[in-house]
Nucleic acid binder design. Structure first.
Lengths: 194, 194
DNA sequence: GTCTATATTCTGATAGAC
DNA sequence: GTCTATCAGAATATAGAC
């Protein structure tokens, strides 16, 4: 973790390349991202990118880590209601808004569209941290069993996916999020009480 | 709709090409399907495929229509319980089994991974017919409001997607399908009764 | 209808001068 | 660190002989 002047500058440049990569990916899809186009967009020629990334996969990996940090920040910026159920709704709602506003991020981070890409352990660890905070919110709201967590996650993703795939600019599916959260949380509590 | 000998033969060949295309797509993913590999697999050279399909998109379109006909047959082969709720569970369960056993079909038909592919009106009409039978089963089970239909569809897709993306060979998510159907159908009926 | 040969365009990645 | 030039390979699609 060197912090010499050159290192700082270099890492700032890497960050700006990743930021531009996200812009292009949001426009053309994650799979449509081309190193040539990315290089031109940051004022370089395509081979020069290899000064900063060993391969395209390495770039995707940086993007994966970066996207998770962005989601983490997005969630950390929330002021959560004290009531756990309402906090959970706000939290899952923030995930949904993140996904709907930045579909390419959601695609890379949560869907598995890139055949040969698997995040590195380091990047995956960040994703795990974020996931952990969701589980915390669910636990606080009374959803403690792994099965019920799975259901809540899958249901939320189902609404997000339907929204993204079909009518990205409406709220046809996502508007039911709170209602379905109530339904599943109530059921989870009922089952745990038995 | 000519039925001359040459036409019959030609359409049989088209069908066999599409069947082989599905085999390759199930192995390498829909996006990974290559016309070169497909041609070799059916004993042709790549340019000869253009005798049967005007473009790769035309091939995808035939596959889309064919996949929907297969799903239609898969569903028509079910012997449904008389009780509407149980029939609905069986029906959605059959969709799930279709998707989990033939992920590439599900990918092309229900997910939108191919950036530039949109089914033709003719092919889309078949998909609409299939969807209509799902709505029928839901209606019979007491799910009449479009909102509730949307929720049920999204929830089912959420379980299927989670299963496919994470642990295709287990039943970690899909095993909750019946339980969540009960939950949503009960809620839909409750809300409709008000 | 099927072939060979090729056009065209794209991709990610490398070599080596400066 | 950035460049030019190039490699090596993939893809879809077309031209034209047979």
């Amino acid at each position: 973790m060197s912090t010499s002047k050159v290192t700082v500058r270099r890492e700032a440049k890497i960050a700006s390349i990743v930021a531009t990569a996200w812009e292009l990916a949001e426009a053309d899809g994650v799979a449509g991202l081309s190193l040539h186009a990315l290089a031109r967009a940051v004022g370089l020629r395509q081979p020069s990118l290899y000064e900063y990334f060993d391969s395209k996969h390495a770039l995707y990996d940086e993007m994966f880590a970066d996207g998770n940090r962005q989601l983490q920040a997005h969630l950390a910026a929330l002021t959560l209601p004290r009531e756990p159920r309402r906090a959970l709704k706000r939290y899952l709602g923030a995930l949904a808004s993140f996904a709907l506003e930045r579909p390419a991020r959601y695609e890379l981070m949560f869907l598995r569209h890139l055949p040969n890409f698997t995040p590195s352990d380091a990047s995956y660890a960040i994703a795990g941290e974020v996931l952990g905070t969701f589980v915390e919110r669910m636990t606080a709201a009374g959803v403690t069993k792994p099965d019920d967590v799975d259901c809540l996650v899958a249901m939320t993703a189902g609404l997000i996916d339907a929204q993204l795939a079909n009518e990205p600019n409406t709220d046809r599916w996502i508007r039911h999020l709170d209602r379905l959260i109530d339904l599943l949380v109530d059921d989870a509590i009922r089952r745990s009480a038995q």
